[in-house]
Design a protein around this nucleic acid. Structure first.
Length: 155
DNA sequence: GCCAACGTTGGC
DNA sequence: GCCAACGTTGGC
């Protein structure tokens, strides 16, 4: 029996990497995550085919911009191994990587972004991590119920 | 630009 | 192992 599909919310600052960039690239490495909880999700729980809500953070307005999909399970984050990279971490090695990345594939861009405000007002999303005050985690699990609600909010 | 939240670091 | 200081995230 195939493993049950999981759902995620990935934050990106659109000034840095937006849904349009993902649409252009098709697939990208989700590198540079330097938080252990987020790392654990990527290393232990993400698998190809999982659904991704692509979230624009530090944007005006912040919100869910579209849908993507996990294309490759966690592997060593190359940016942690490169001394010239801003995200270089000397504690991480190819044999013993501390940080992980996954590959993410574009699925669709919503006709209109779903602003965080609207998520907060939508019944069923009260417990969603991103709607909680002070939620900073850049890789968040999303329940199947939340996924269904959010993905039905836009074309 | 401000500041709340919160993860990380380092002195003890 | 505690906890204050510090840095970062991210909404507003």
């Amino acid at each position: 029996m195939p493993a049950k599909k999981n759902y995620w919310l990935l934050k990106s600052e659109p000034d840095c990497y937006s849904i349009d960039d993902l649409q252009r690239d098709g697939t990208t490495f989700w590198s540079g995550v330097r938080n252990y909880q987020a790392r654990n999700y990527m290393r232990d729980e993400m698998k190809p085919g999982d659904g991704v809500l692509f979230y624009h953070s530090s944007a005006e307005p912040p919100g869910v911009a579209g849908i993507a999909e996990i294309a490759r399970e966690g592997y060593a984050d190359a940016t942690a191994l490169d001394p010239k990279d801003d995200h270089y971490d000397p504690k991480s090695t190819q044999e013993n990587p501390i940080w992980m990345m996954v590959d993410v594939k574009f699925v669709k861009k919503f006709k209109e972004l779903i602003p965080l405000n609207e998520l907060k007002e939508t019944p069923g999303l009260e417990k969603m991590m991103v709607t909680q005050r002070g939620s900073r985690l850049s890789v968040q699990p999303v329940t199947e119920e939340e996924w269904k609600i959010v993905t039905k909010m836009r074309k």
